[in-house]
Design a protein around this nucleic acid. Structure first.
Lengths: 143, 143
DNA sequence: TATTGTTATACTCTATAACTATA
DNA sequence: TATAGTTATAGAGTATAACAATA
């Protein structure tokens, strides 16, 4: 099941879960250091190369549309994102990062790379490539 | 940085982050299906083989002690955990799973294994062992 | 009528600060 | 005085339900 701290992994599932919790702990810490929630971090990451409608962004994040309204309200108030009425559909609203939002997303991105580096540094270049390849195949198999 | 949905990974860091988000998404979904938050799921996992004091559990979970008080209040009200005054220290309170809590933890555990199986099934037995070993070495390098 | 998004409401999660009881 | 835990308070994140505007 979910990993207990410092417990030995007995299976691949345990190792995956523990890796997930370790990574999420780092992401949560980095989010907090930048006054972001984990959800806001994900939102920033998604908006980095997209300009979705509210409904599409809610779908990406796995949230109800009402939840997203509040999330975007707060991010917009902080100047990180902007709303714009869709040209195609009078009911729809597009969301996208402001320049400040883009800057923050870039900054957070480099912090994440730094935070995960210690673990990956324990592996040789060959092993890193192997790990990346195995993870990608596992992820691809799910979609 | 954090993965966007369905975007190609360009580095090990991206693959790790995307794996983390995929895994956490499954854990979040399973938690919700069992009327648990992700934090409550982690708490159940930790208490499965431990009987810590409030302060130690808060430390494990990375929460303030006041946050944990509320968390345990709600879990206790649902009959999942129990509190007991420490025999050693009159100020301290031990926390542990109730029988119902243990049953729920076991049930959730098997759901998690089922949820992660599709991805791991894409790999051969040898590859699964390799992946597990690489992840474990990466995790060990951090502690 | 169906869809997009917002608003109203309620509950959980979280932290900070103040407090009680014990060491 | 210092530590363990709870309570009070406030804000963010979340969902459900009701609503307005548009398709």
């Amino acid at each position: 099941m979910t990993p207990s701290p410092s417990s030995p992994q007995e299976s691949l599932v345990d190792a995956l879960a523990q890796t997930a919790f370790m990574t999420m702990a780092e992401l949560t810490r980095i989010s907090a250091e930048n006054d972001l929630s984990l959800t806001q971090l994900r939102m920033l990451a998604i908006l980095r190369d997209r300009r979705p409608r509210m409904a599409a962004l809610a779908e990406y994040l796995g949230l109800e549309k009402s939840t997203l309204s509040g999330l975007i309200d707060r991010a917009q108030k902080r100047g990180l994102v902007q709303r714009e009425a869709s040209a195609q559909d009078g009911r729809a609203v597009d969301v996208f990062l402001s320049p400040a939002g883009h800057r923050l997303a870039e900054q957070v991105s480099s912090h994440i790379a730094d935070a995960l580096a210690p673990g990956t540094a324990a592996l040789s270049s060959d092993e890193q490539r192997t790990l990346q390849s195995l993870l990608e195949r596992m992820l691809d198999a799910r979609s």
